[in-house]
Simulated scan of single mutants.
Amino acid sequence: MAQTIASDLEYSFDGTRMIGRRFVPVGAGDVPGVLVIHAAHGLGEQVLGCAERVAALGYAVLAIDLWGERKQITNPAEIGPMLGAFNANPDMWMGRIEAARQALIASGNVDANRIAVMGYCFGGSSSIEFVRSGAPIAGAVSFHGGLDNVGDDFTKAGADARVLILTGSQDPLASAADLARVEAGMSAVGLNWETNVYANTKHGFTEPDRGPRPPFAAYNAIADRRSWSAMSAFFADLFAH
């Protein structure tokens, strides 16, 4: 595992300032890049820790600030309206991720032709949607993404893009019907995709149970460990070609 250097990285889209966190391996040249997208609560310590672990694998990483101004959502009542605003405005949703991609490239030490995206919960949905939008990225990984937020028309997706879906069998936000719908959409255009479904696993399985959680979400140590291994192997293969 490589040692990393961390620094805040500011960028903007349509007048909104976003404050991401950049991690790069010490002494790195131009290495593959990974965008890491947070869940509904915003860019907090857990996802920053995950981003640093990804960078330690040898990648230049930007933990993006999707909400802007490093906003943290602590009131559950605010989550639905925030997600709804992004679902209703895909240009803003995808535009903010694209701004992060460009900021990562401009920051240096990144191979602009080898960039992937990964995310948790809404960040997982965002990662698949970024592929679906036709963004110039190599691949995407979704950790317990809400597949109910993902469309199934992948005709704009890059022909060489690859997708890895990591989901729980008991996640109501990623029902079997939604999973089949998204997989069928990717298959229809010949996209290279794979799915890992973890038994007895609810939504948010990588997030430790700190304080009250909705009944459909719970940490699962096995799924957390196995999904991280799957993501690591996926990126290693993705960036080797």
Rank of each mutant, 00 (worst) to 15 (best):
Arg162Tyr: 04
Ile5Val: 15
Ile64Cys: 14
Gly211Leu: 01
His38Tyr: 00
Ala184Gly: 08
Asp160Val: 00
Gly139Phe: 02
Ser133Met: 05
Trp93Tyr: 08
Lys156Asn: 07
Ala56Asn: 01
Ala188Cys: 07
Asp148Ala: 05
Ile222Tyr: 15
Gly80Tyr: 10
Gln102Cys: 09
Phe122Trp: 13
Gly158Cys: 03
Thr201Arg: 12
Ala217Phe: 07
Glu207Gly: 00
Asp237Arg: 10
Asp209Gln: 09
Ala157Glu: 05
Ile5Asn: 14
His38Asp: 00
Val54Arg: 09
Thr201Cys: 00
Gln3Gly: 13
Ser142Glu: 09
Ala218Val: 02
Lys202Arg: 15
Trp67Cys: 01
Asn196Leu: 03
Ala103Ile: 05
Gly119Trp: 07
Asn149Leu: 14
Leu9Asp: 05
Tyr198Pro: 14
Cys50Gln: 04
Phe23Val: 07
Asp153Thr: 02
Met18Gln: 11
Val34Asp: 03
Gln170Glu: 15
Ser127Gly: 13
Gly190Lys: 04
Asp148Gly: 03
Leu43Trp: 02
Gly123Ala: 02
Ala217Leu: 04
Pro215Gln: 06
Leu179His: 03
Arg22Trp: 04
Met186Asn: 02
Pro215Asn: 07
Thr4Gln: 10
Ala2Tyr: 11
Ala60Leu: 05
Ala240Cys: 05
Thr4Glu: 12
Ala180Glu: 14
Gly168Asp: 02
Val26Ala: 15
Trp93Val: 00
Ala106Glu: 14
His203Gln: 04
Ser232Tyr: 09
Ala116Ile: 13
